[in-house]
Amino acid sequence: MIPFDFEYDRPGTVGEALTVFRQLDAEQKNPMFFGGGTEIISMARMGNVKTGAVVDLKAIPECRVFEYDKDRLLIGSALTLSDLVEAKRFPLLDHTAGRVADHTMQCKITFGGNLASTIIYRETVLPLLLADAVVTVATQGGLRDYKITQIFRERLQLPRGEFIVRASIEKRWLSAPYIHVKKTKNEKVDYPLLTVACLKADDKIRMAFSGLLPYPFRDLQWENLMNDKSLSFPERAEQISALAAPHLLNNLDGSAEFRKFVLNNTLIKVLQTLKGV
């Protein structure tokens, strides 16, 4: 039960969504775009979110695409995580999405909603960071394409009133060797101690993390170390862990020290599994 009122709008087109959001903003309703809504609803119940209107993006056809366009796979922001998992088109993304919350929640959480989440993990961005995704954003000036790194730094950085319509990935990434490891405190369905997603291409490992810091990230310095052939696997892991150590999260899921230990172990396993570089 949400202890306050808000208005519900479900636009059928990108244009309607932008317009209605602008109107609601003008009415000082502090509107919010609404994907799966799981986070807004649960936080609203606890009084941690207050809004006068939600704009549900799930009925916009452009946000529901899931198709190939020439050499790219287009992934609509209103697809549920379960849609991604069931379709099995981009294995790394499927695996990542399949480990966010639990299965029934995956039937409700949307891809775009997870990217825009205020909860710090936002794990579905990891494959996008690795595969140089292009993100199409609905702006007042029309649809605009950005590199993922232009609009996602720690969290989604979009001007108010804009929203993600879809992401697209070059086909060559879809079949690249990959690995996804999620480590939790003790239970499969939980927030991560760490989640690491890796893609291997041109004999190089790309890797991105969630759960280590208060935001998901890809760090090129870490990647260089990971690919440094002059170092043994344990040396690479140790140097990266040492770099990470001062910044690691320390919370109920695990201490910073334990995260460091898990990171070190996990990196070695990743290197062994991907047969190094």
């Binding site: 519900y8 299965h103 039937c107 409700k108």
Partner: peptide, 13 residues
């Protein structure tokens, strides 16, 4: 056709 937690779905949805 999909299982949904009805506590996290708006009636309007």
């Amino acid at each position: 056709g999909w299982p949904i937690k009805s506590c996290l779905m708006l009636t309007a949805e």
